[in-house]
Amino acid sequence: MEKKVATLERGTVCSAWNYNGIRLASGSVNGILSIFDPPDPASSSSSLSCSSSFKVNEVSIVKVVWVPPEFGDAVACISADGSLSLWEEVMEAGQSLQWKFCTKFQSKTAGVLDIQFGGSSNCLKLVIAFSDGYVKVYELLNPLELNTWQLQAEFQNVIDSVSKFTKVSCSSATLSWIPQRVETQQFSFVLGLNSDIPELNSPKVWEFDQMHQRWLPVAELALAEDSGESVHSVAWAPNIGRPYEIISVATQKGIAIWNVGLNPDVDGRLSVEKVALLSGHQGEVWQMEWDMSGMTLASSGSDGVVRLWQSNLNGVWHEQAILEPTS
């Protein structure tokens, strides 16, 4: 039985659920950010309703991302002009809750392609991928003030730190933080690019070295014959007790499932193994999401179909279900 969750305005191009899954943010082609909330208990409606709608830019919003709830109700918006703005819901004296502009990130020479928030309950980090192939990592200095960001690091997506590429052109980027676990304060993320420089494209796992206070590449998720392929999407699976991490990588060849070891070698690198290549989508895979257990992967792309993937007890991956639009 189908149930309408929310009605989005014509011109909506992106949306995102908050971490609790009860609020929805959407961005439109005319630069308007809309927030949808559950209906009032006294209401007869069962679908979300728009509680706020305001203009954040004169150009289209291309992606919206919620800030982790421990740091308040806030949404980051990437716009078509390459800028990134942060908006926070606050209550000012004598007024009701309102959405206010918080801060803006913008480069003079490159546009923002993708962002992800990560960290722990008391340390929030923001990683931003730019169209010139550079990545910037920011850290929030005051957990109560979402405009107190400090640049922590800036680097390109290469294993060899000596290599520097100039005049890089990236059409897209994809980021995914390691899902945080209570027992660890490890900061890691995976980044893949779609650029004109093959060395930058392949997904690299970056980990923060607490001792030396720097970010280091600890794994590359590509075989020798695939190292220059453009990457369309990456997703890091939650880990509920496996002795390895699982990361999915989508390229033109399909969705690769990688097992990444937990124990580094003498050079600080993690072991990697490509355990599956999932095919079925007709066209590019644009987005992937894991369930909370890290055992089921959902993927969607240009064919307009959502596919669900699982592995059996023997580690063999298979397509579990296909969800097609009804109209």
Rank of each mutant, 00 (worst) to 15 (best):
A16T: 09
W17I: 11
W17N: 11
Y19G: 09
N20Q: 11
N20C: 06
G21R: 01
I22S: 13
I22E: 09
I22K: 00
I22Y: 01
R23E: 08
A25T: 00
S26M: 13
S26K: 07
G27I: 11
G27F: 06
G27C: 03
V29C: 11
V29W: 03
V29I: 15
G31V: 02
G31N: 03
G31Y: 01
G31T: 03
I32T: 13
I32K: 14
S34R: 15
S34Y: 01
I35E: 13
I35V: 15
F36C: 08
F36G: 05
D37S: 12
D37Q: 09
D37M: 08
P38R: 12
D40F: 06
D40H: 15
P41G: 08
P41Y: 01
P41I: 01
P41C: 00
P41Q: 02
A42N: 13
S43W: 04
S45N: 13
S46G: 15
S46K: 13
S47T: 11
L48S: 03
L48A: 11
S49P: 00
S49Y: 11
S51G: 04
S52F: 15
S52M: 04
S52N: 10
S52Y: 12
F54D: 11
K55Q: 13
K55S: 11
K55H: 08
V56S: 07
E58A: 10
E58M: 08
E58L: 07
E58H: 09
V59D: 12
V59Q: 11
S60V: 02
S60E: 06
I61G: 08
V62I: 14
V62W: 05
K63G: 01
V65M: 05
V65E: 06
W66R: 10
W66P: 10
P68R: 10
P68A: 14
P69A: 08
E70C: 05
E70Y: 03
E70P: 04
F71K: 04
F71L: 02
F71T: 07
G72H: 03
G72M: 03
D73K: 07
D73E: 14
D73H: 09
D73T: 15
A74C: 15
V75Y: 05
A76C: 12
A76L: 14
C77T: 15
C77Y: 10
C77S: 14
I78W: 04
S79P: 09
D81H: 05
